[in-house]
Design a binder for these strands. Sequence first.
DNA 1: TTGTAGTATTTATCATGATAAATAGAACTG
DNA 2: CAGTTCTATTTATCATGATAAATACTACAA
Lengths: 271, 271
Amino acid sequence: MSSVPPSIPSPVRIKQPKRADLVTEDVKRLITARNLKPGDRLPNEKDLQELFGVSKSTTREALKSLEVQGLITISTGPSGGATIREVPLERTLQLMQNYLFFQDISMKDLYAARTILEPELAAGAVANLTDEQLARLEANIETCQPACGSNATLLDQRQSDLDFHDLLAEANGDPFLRFLCQLINELLRRLVVYSTDTPADEHVSFGCANVRCHTAILNAARNRDADEVRRLMKEHMEEAESFVARLNGCLDGRLILDSEMAPQLRGFEPR
Amino acid sequence: MSSVPPSIPSPVRIKQPKRADLVTEDVKRLITARNLKPGDRLPNEKDLQELFGVSKSTTREALKSLEVQGLITISTGPSGGATIREVPLERTLQLMQNYLFFQDISMKDLYAARTILEPELAAGAVANLTDEQLARLEANIETCQPACGSNATLLDQRQSDLDFHDLLAEANGDPFLRFLCQLINELLRRLVVYSTDTPADEHVSFGCANVRCHTAILNAARNRDADEVRRLMKEHMEEAESFVARLNGCLDGRLILDSEMAPQLRGFEPR
DNA sequence: TTGTAGTATTTATCATGATAAATAGAACTG
DNA sequence: CAGTTCTATTTATCATGATAAATACTACAA
């Protein structure tokens, strides 16, 4: 018999890591150790097989893992293979939604976080807003003017409303706060559904209120009045939450698919 | 399982989605459509091959993708194969750290978000805290008493300090706010490094201040005084940030590996 | 110069096993 | 009954191609 001691049947046996996962880790170490940057290339499949002493299928699974994690793209052709890339925001948001799919997140929860974060995000963006960004904010408000719209148009407006907040997020210098707000915006964008029997005029009221709030925020931002922006945004969030509640807005519990997301997910990287 | 469908050469080339990714999407649709829950099993490899009309390697890559995303675990043996699971928090945090690896997040950014969120998190937890949780908080404070410790012990105390905040997070009823705070805690836990030449007594001061703050927060929590908890936590965050700054704490820019994380990542699921 | 056609490289996908390891459940044993 | 062994099932990993498709580059033609 071998020298391995008779494994004591413990309640939790240690799961043997799979080779592909070990290779994935090795590649990550390689990235950290060699300080590889987006655009740098990994060795091709054949070389990786030799480098780590594993078979083709194991190598391919490891690369698949890195691809799913958003860390590499793979292309065919000469000088093809795996290229490191900056993990796209969209990819991260999608992976996060896999998690939230199983959590019982309510609209109330989302708005609780939003009411805390958005005012600070907006206030922090005020100082950085360029003329161009201010112009885009103004243009966005135009788009959101609720005219006589079909129901589909009204839903489109809910999407455009969110763009206003994404634009503000872009102007904030804090990448982490930005990320948190983008996450919330994305969740609202993908998962909010309204009951079909909601009267259209309620939606119109919602749109009008948003336009009013956004306009006020934009004006305060033009005056570089961060405190006022914070105050207005807080009000806006509280009002918006009550509108959503009145419209029976709730979160759709479903898995987001890759194909619903931005094209960068497909792995195409211009340069 | 025959040949790949021919593609018509169009003027606008769209990146052809890979088969494995299409299969991954199909499985996700299956999960949503059939309302599959954690513990439910997918068909085995062979059946999936037939179901989707793809080869073994493609099937395996699709399963690998789902596994990396944390949506399934795979086991061998009779009645083995892919089992749906709730995406573990740890998995999600790791995937998110892949994203943040490329973002230039500073300690200041992290503490900005923390100072906004933690006070609300703590205040929201007060009403829900059970006696058992209060006891655990108290026990945690004991652990963090900075005695005469080696440098390694001092760093361990930084980790234990974070446990206090994780314990509070657990008691908050809002799963989304909880998630955000757990994310921050995890980032601090994994990525904060201190310069080696920091005097030990500064670390001791830090530890003492934390114990003081945590004690005050615990007392206020026992009195179910949410406002006081909020106020104390805000103070605590501001003080902690200045301590970290004085200790030259900064974020280690590296990729987190699976093996650093909790065992649930390995795919083991009791039941 | 500009566009096209050819060529070599590399991944994508398929096919078809073989051996090893993990595992659940049945059969056996003290 | 409790523990062990046997056995069938299923994935893990390897091996070894073959054909198809995407792509970078080069050579050639208008």
